[in-house]
């Protein structure tokens, strides 16, 4: 399991990535992050919902309600054009970060 300290700056990026293909809701997003990371990273519930709050405040995602079968009401999220732009920016930032950090990593 990855320590959440290291990955903190990229939680938002992961969530935005999950929304690139279309709207989704809390549990689905966290489940997909878990499986995509091959169970190496599990986003905590509070981390996930803090990120939703932050992303929504910044206008990167919008929230809306959808009534499911069995009467369950879910909050869905959709990425905005600003969100896509922010995601691209974060991708470039990571490339640079990776390059830099790699310079200090010795192959074992």
């Amino acid at each position: 399991m990855i320590s959440s300290d290291v990955i903190r700056g990229y939680n938002d990026t992961m969530i935005l990535y999950m929304l690139l293909d279309g709207e989704s809701y809390g549990y689905e997003i966290s489940k997909n992050i878990r499986s995509l990371s091959e169970e190496k990273y599990v986003m905590k519930e509070t981390t996930l919902y803090s990120a939703f709050t932050r992303l929504e405040k910044n206008g990167y995602i919008t929230a809306f309600h959808k009534d499911e079968t069995f009467g369950k009401r879910r909050t869905y999220y959709r990425i905005t054009p600003e969100g896509v732009a922010y995601y691209r920016e974060k991708c470039r930032e990571w490339q640079v970060t990776q390059e830099v950090v790699d310079k200090f990593i010795k192959e074992p």
Partner: peptide
């Protein structure tokens, strides 16, 4: 919302 997600999980 969190309760719903935890129930799903």
């Amino acid at each position: 919302d969190m309760l719903a997600a935890m129930e799903d999980k």
